[in-house]
Amino acid sequence: MFSILRAIWTVFLHLFRRKVTVLYPEEKPRIPPRWRGRIILSRDPDGGERCVACYLCAVACPVGCIALQAAEDEYGRRYPEFFRINFSRCIFCGFCEEACPTCAIQLTTDFEMSEYYRHNLVYEKEDLLISGPGKHPGYNFYKVAGLAIKGKDKGENENESPPVDVKGLLP
């Protein structure tokens, strides 16, 4: 009985407490760097597209809002022919970033992306691709993956020995 009255009094006293609300947009909140906001596609340190169109982000996406098509350049480097994220469906869970083996897809601190029309929230590759490496400045997938591309032949990776001479007789 008394506890109920005391609770009522305690709640009443909150009238005079400092408010925790941040009055956005007049006052900008501090966004931590690992914030899961607008998704981008990054480039590797050499300026090449990092995305290799492996479809892992698409399959990890719980709402299925990523669609892409793989293509290959004449030297065998994979890239997405198109890459579409339907942000009107995206729940910003960050699974795509976790699934990405090449650090290409990254969630950024930008969350101010409201639109009046849903179709404006459909982002294509040219809307997603940025010019830098984003959160992972040094990483270059093709430096560790054993696939020959333009400017990197077989055996030229970190941790690779030159190609075997199949017709050699040495042990």
């Binding site: 299925g64 809002c65 669609a67 339907n86 849903r118 459909v122 294509e124």
Partner: peptide
Amino acid sequence: HRFSGRTAIHADVDVH
């Protein structure tokens, strides 16, 4: 059951 891109495949034509 892992089919991906259900909500994005046609989004360039119609977002619904």
